[in-house]
Design a protein around this nucleic acid. Sequence first.
DNA 1: TTAATAAAGGATATTTTTGTCCGTTATTGT
DNA 2: ACAATAACGGACAAAAATATCCTTTATTAA
Lengths: 144, 144
Amino acid sequence: MFSKACEYGIKATLHVAQQSSEGSRVGLKDIATAIDSPEAFTAKIMQQLSRNGIVDSIKGPNGGFEIPKEKLKTIQLIQIVSAIDGDQLFYGCGLGLKQCNEQKPCPVHHKFKAIRDNLKTMLETTSIEELALGLSDGLTFLKR
Amino acid sequence: MFSKACEYGIKATLHVAQQSSEGSRVGLKDIATAIDSPEAFTAKIMQQLSRNGIVDSIKGPNGGFEIPKEKLKTIQLIQIVSAIDGDQLFYGCGLGLKQCNEQKPCPVHHKFKAIRDNLKTMLETTSIEELALGLSDGLTFLKR
DNA sequence: TTAATAAAGGATATTTTTGTCCGTTATTGT
DNA sequence: ACAATAACGGACAAAAATATCCTTTATTAA
């Protein structure tokens, strides 16, 4: 469904979000440990997230990554997915046709549209804040 | 969503199905042309489909691939996807966790389950025959 | 029984994705 | 100013997915 990079990106963002909600800034090592990901690869992903304005990055001692509290509720899952995997998943043809639309649909066009609209809506309406809350409450987990 | 191999596999199967429904057996070249795919790579995929009993392959002159007419309505999309991509898409964790279940769910576990169940049901209830019909009727297309 | 045909299968190549390494840059506290 | 810290960024490496090439095997028809 999502690339590995995107999976790491979502998990990393949620960890940063959860820590930010508790007022803590987190470093790369901390993130990689929390989400059980390769550190250097995760660094690349954090750069993408930072460039896309999803997390703030601060250099130097006591630096790290954070998300301003007031921003937590404005970030939806879809922003992370779009930033890392693009939106081919939402708009591209399920069978990989260059052109596939209502006028000239692939055999699964209509059936797929329903599913993907579903997925897109879910990602659009799910906020980082909401998911981070589940982590804080110990109801959900980022590794294992 | 699906791998390139799986996309080719679905398209190839649908082309074979459509031709079989009209009583024609089709060769590899014919398939690659019809679905606009690399021939040698498509050959590998046809082997997988054949080994999984999705298409019949016949060697020698006038050989090729076919699906017995009576079998057309018994093959569902999910068989192709499972044969080529496996069922990680349906059962694996959306964030790539090794273990992710009701007891110890990832942050998107429940939201994803709904989407994937949806997808799975769609694939389970969509037959090759149904999709091949749309092709025969000129309502849907396998390339462009 | 031979030549032609077409899929099967093994080996190899290319591209993309995933992952690593290391010097650079910005920031902080001393 | 200087040393320590931590993200940034470029180059490189490994693995997986995609794609190609070529020989072998089975089948058919002449």
